[in-house]
Amino acid sequence: MAAGGDHGSPDSYRSPLASRYASPEMCFVFSDRYKFRTWRQLWLWLAEAEQTLGLPITDEQIQEMKSNLENIDFKMAAEEEKRLRHDVMAHVHTFGHCCPKAAGIIHLGATSCYVGDNTDLIILRNALDLLLPKLARVISRLADFAKERASLPTLGFTHFQPAQLTTVGKRCCLWIQDLCMDLQNLKRVRDDLRFRGVKGTTGTQASFLQLFEGDDHKVEQLDKMVTEKAGFKRAFIITGQTYTRKVDIEVLSVLASLGASVHKICTDIRLLANLKEMEEPFEKQQIGSSAMPYKRNPMRSERCCSLARHLMTLVMDPLQTASVQWFERTLDDSANRRICLAEAFLTADTILNTLQNISEGLVVYPKVIERRIRQELPFMATENIIMAMVKAGGSRQDCHEKIRVLSQQAASVVKQEGGDNDLIERIQVDAYFSPIHSQLDHLLDPSSFTGRASQQVQRFLEEEVYPLLKPYESVMKVKAELCL
């Protein structure tokens, strides 16, 4: 049975990233139509530049190519590739079939990587351009969430054990800070992308030097003109047959890092959902379990974690691919890159769409948070109580021993009897502590235990987050809708 299948058929496997999760716009960027249309555009740009620099290419040939950029006979191309065992030459023939007058000058002087690699770089750039505003929107939604809850005390956790208090907004800023680093890295790697350009079979530009009869300047002009037509500021000066596969490492490393950030955020949300302090959106008709109707599973956060793990592992592909590119190139890269580049971007696209949807509907339960604080705060307040007693004339050592005994009794009630923490009640009825009984409410005010959390939130948002989001103001209103 021949390899390949009808990918629109229910009898043929289709990647869930495309069929179930990723956005239509990201799927289109990695589609065959987008790819092969870009090949034709690159052939047109090459012909236009070659004509401008004096090669015998007519206006009629150029116009014929322009008129057929979208006229792609995919069936013919597939048949040609089956016959020739070469995808680029299959599309040269297919393009030439609908451009008979231009057929002889299509791909003039070029090698397969002229269309293959340059198209990949265009796709990487455009895919990054799709991700950047999506990530900015996630940051914006979380920034709104953090600002609104900047002063809401909550129990902090280290080692997932109760620690000092923080605020809900401050905790959210930990998430935002990681995503801001990801946004900066995505922008950097996007701006650092260079075009492969017009380089020939081993990167020496020998074929173009021959076409222009040894004119170095025209060869350099050709490279520059096509690079500018493709919208790049610069091209690699040095290439082998391909652009260095280190570029793929750079791009997928940034995406993998984004995956790590999203995994951490969504894990926190899942843990908070278990504590009943916070939940992701839950639709009115949504079913959490087929057997347990009360369940409210954090399905979206779980999906993000599941896909983020996949995204983090994909960076190993370009690392290994770059390491086995012998001399000017081997074909070890080809099949692998067809999979890992598309999957990385479709996965990143999915987790950003999902995280935006989550961040637009996060639900906080202040009463649950308050109750958990009441359970733990008495123990945390013991040092403040000791200091207040010393100020009232008591002995630190005597007070410490009193607190120690009462704390152990209260802990026994919590752990052995399943009761509430009654340390404060014990202190309130103990005559030894009568000098500070009137101060206990103040000493137990949760806001006095959150330090500068709310001020940190305000400063972080104003100095770091809002300036970073400013270039994306025009796209901030787009909502994230999930079908599944």
Rank of each mutant, 00 (worst) to 15 (best):
H107C: 07
M225I: 15
Y243C: 15
R296M: 10
D32C: 11
A206S: 05
V413L: 10
E213H: 15
E279A: 07
A2D: 08
T158I: 00
L108E: 01
A102C: 09
A103R: 14
M76S: 10
E148S: 11
L108I: 11
E280W: 04
H107F: 00
C98G: 10
W39S: 08
R426A: 08
H107A: 00
L346W: 08
E60W: 11
E481L: 10
F379V: 05
T354W: 05
R40D: 00
C305F: 00
H97Y: 13
P378Q: 04
G5L: 08
I265M: 15
L319S: 01
L108W: 14
A102K: 00
F460L: 06
E383F: 05
E425T: 15
T119G: 12
L46Q: 04
L461G: 02
A273C: 14
F327G: 10
P293W: 02
Q241C: 03
P153Q: 03
C304R: 02
N71E: 12
E481N: 15
L275E: 06
V115I: 14
D191V: 10
P100Y: 11
L275R: 08
L186W: 06
E50A: 07
M380T: 01
L121H: 04
C304D: 04
V168S: 05
L484N: 15
Q210K: 14
D333I: 00
T58A: 12
D59I: 09
S323D: 08
E48I: 07
H400D: 02
K170I: 01
L352V: 09
L211H: 06
F212P: 01
E462F: 11
Q397C: 06
M278S: 04
M299S: 13
I176L: 13
D191K: 06
V247K: 09
M26A: 03
P298L: 03
G116T: 15
E464V: 07
V198R: 02
L183A: 09
K147M: 12
H93K: 14
I105Y: 11
Y243A: 15
F460T: 06
V247W: 11
A90P: 00
G231A: 10
S23D: 14
T166I: 07
Q397P: 02
C172I: 07
E370R: 10
G8I: 15
R40L: 01
L444S: 01
L55M: 13
Q61L: 07
L255V: 12
P318H: 03
R426V: 04
I351N: 05
E383G: 06
R270M: 04
K218M: 09
M387P: 06
S9P: 10
T201G: 07
Y472T: 07
M26F: 05
D215Q: 14
R137C: 15
Y13P: 14
S67L: 13
I269M: 07
V364W: 07
